[in-house]
Amino acid sequence: MSEPVLSIENLSVSFSSRRGVARVVDGVDWEVHPGQTLAVVGESGSGKSMTVLAATGLSPRGAKVGGTVRLRGEDLGAMSEVERRRARGRHVGFVYQDPMTSLNPVMPVGRQVTEASEEHLGLRGDDARSRAVELLDMVGIPSPEQRVDNYPHQFSGGMRQRVVIAMALANDPELLIADEATTALDVTTQAQILELVESLQERLGTAVVWITHDLGVVAGIADQVAVMYGGRILEHGTVDHIFGSPGHPYTQALLAARPQPGVRADRLATIPGAPPVPHQLPPGCAFYPRCPVRGDERCRTEEPPLTEIAPGHRVRTFYRAPHSGIERPAS
């Protein structure tokens, strides 16, 4: 297999406050290879966004970050702040949830699209402009020669997100990070954007890390899936592992909580309670208080290790629960 574009090892992020230490991300490992899509799935407070921010050196002030992050094989932790910024600008593109906040309202979109290229590739004047037109055309914005001089407010939500994607792709990055990139969009617009990213990925061989809470989106685009909860990975595997034979009670419950199309069951299977708040994590398994399997004392006091149950399929639980019934201790 090729070398991963981004790999993180034992990544942790914590914040100290008067109310104690909040471990927002705890011992996360994964990697993403060229042309592949890794989906990081989780609910609010799962640490899915923070993982990626910390991995690219963008964690907020006051965050204590531990672990190793390698971008194209180079250790980001060993770099200076300037080098890190350069590496990020040159090789990573970002797409966030709300396109309006990622765009400067008083600057024409064309200039914003190539702003990073000006800094990192030394693109100027007409070159920058024609590159901007090319990029806008690539992301499917009609009549890009005219649109290049428009301002963000002159675009619809879906078109704005296309502009942001064009911006992210300006330096031909090896890695695209999309954080809830389609959450604010309508389904028909979401379908357009997903299709766009897929086709660009095929053409350019970009690796994609797609952060989302939407399992539906994941099933359609991901190769690998990491399910996060309470700052930890609870399950990690291929899409078929996660959707076909989910090993963690949380993953299973999450899948069962969605209404199935065409099946009008009286009642949906639910997970009681709410996701934990980072500084109030339970001592053992983070999911224990809500777990339908409800193991034993061990689950309450001891954190289960992430164990491989099939090649490339890792699960963090003492009690694997197959689709029907509960399997007794595996390890």
């Binding site: 709410a274 708040v277 339908p292 629960a321």
Partner: peptide, 18 residues
């Protein structure tokens, strides 16, 4: 499925808010 705790548990939310 085994992880459905039935209506009582599913329809209440006594989890401790902060």
């Amino acid at each position: 499925s085994s992880h459905d705790l039935g209506p009582t548990a599913a329809e209440t939310d006594h989890s401790h808010g902060e």
